[in-house]
């Protein structure tokens, strides 16, 4: 039985990828998650300039629905400073994807140029935070593809009213994989103090509540694109069965965020892998290709 999977030309030893923004602040935490058994790791989203992000509280759990409400406000040290971490990470041949964001295509171009000499597995363009339409996406993807030969993944947010149109723009401009989904808009108000809990007041939700939304989005994308472009499923994965569900919907790999933000992330990764193996054994499946998009058969 093999857990290997392909995303275009990229081969991963298993389909689990650390999602952006979780344990992704330093080369050492990313390395730790790769050593824990992830197939690859995505950094937190990096911009052109340093940003302190939103005031605290920025992240808290809602235990009753196994979910996380957050608004970190894209806190990051800027690509120039973060490069030091990336050098240390890639020195060890760790398969690393750098998530980037930018208001304008010029900003994005500058970041890609600055990091292009590193042996990265891919870039991931985070579209979650500025108002995007097919035209802006085309511009951003276009400039990245002009500058780099490295694979480009585009991460979609379900809050956009037409995810398929945005995805189409990205695919037409040469993006190499689609990542779906980012957080869904959310907020929590404390009724005793009558205050929004997040420092930024408004934020997004991730974790278990996201899973059916993410599965639907991946299913829609696979229905539309078929084998034309690899899809990476994200949202609410916390056990092997969740991974299988995303693969059946059409994902070739998955990303895991909230579920590994726990005291013992190594155990979590092992637990998820065990669940995948158990399912494959029970179903007599030799490799993942047999089930990708299986819900359409």
């Amino acid at each position: 039985m093999s857990l290997e999977t392909n995303l275009g030309d990229i081969k991963l030893k298993n389909p689990l990828i650390l999602a952006s923004g979780i344990l992704g602040a330093s080369y050492s935490s990313l390395q730790r998650m790769y050593d824990a058994g992830m197939g690859a790791v995505v950094t937190k989203s990096i911009g052109k300039n340093p940003r302190s992000g939103s005031p605290n509280p920025t992240i808290f759990a809602l235990v009753e629905i196994k979910s996380i409400v957050s608004s970190v406000g894209l806190a990051n040290p800027g690509y120039k400073t973060f490069k030091e971490d990336l050098v240390k990470l890639t020195e060890k041949q760790t398969p690393a994807i750098v998530s980037i964001f930018g208001e304008t295509k010029e900003d994005i171009g500058e970041i890609i140029e600055g990091l292009n000499d590193l042996p990265l597995l891919a870039f991931e363009l985070n579209l979650g935070y500025s108002k995007e339409n097919p035209k802006t996406v085309q511009e951003k993807v276009g400039i990245i593809k002009q500058i780099t030969n490295k694979p480009l993944w585009v991460k979609l947010t379900p809050d956009e009213c037409n995810v398929i149109k945005i995805a189409e723009a990205a695919v037409n401009c040469g993006c190499n994989a689609l990542v779906a989904i980012n957080k869904v808009k959310a907020m929590v108000i404390d009724i005793k103090t009558k205050q929004p809990v997040l420092g930024a007041k408004k934020g997004g939700i991730s974790g278990s509540v996201l899973k059916p939304i993410g599965v639907r989005c991946v299913y829609d994308l696979y229905e539309h694109f078929g084998d034309k472009i690899p899809i990476i499923g994200v949202g609410g994965i916390s056990k092997g069965e969740d991974v299988i569900e995303y693969l059946l919907a059409g994902a070739s790999a998955v990303q895991i965020g909230s579920a590994v933000g726990v005291a013992y992330p190594e155990n979590m990764v092992r637990f998820i892998q065990m669940g995948i193996r158990k399912y494959l054994r029970e179903q007599n499946i030799e490799n993942l290709d047999e089930i990708i998009g299986g819900a359409f058969k």
């Binding site: 979780i22 602040a25 050492s28 759990a61 957050s70 933000g261 005291a263 992330p265």
Partner: peptide, 12 residues
């Protein structure tokens, strides 16, 4: 930031 190990902002 988060206090429970998710963001790793406090990593050493």
């Amino acid at each position: 930031r988060c206090g429970f190990g998710l963001c790793a902002g406090c990593v050493v």
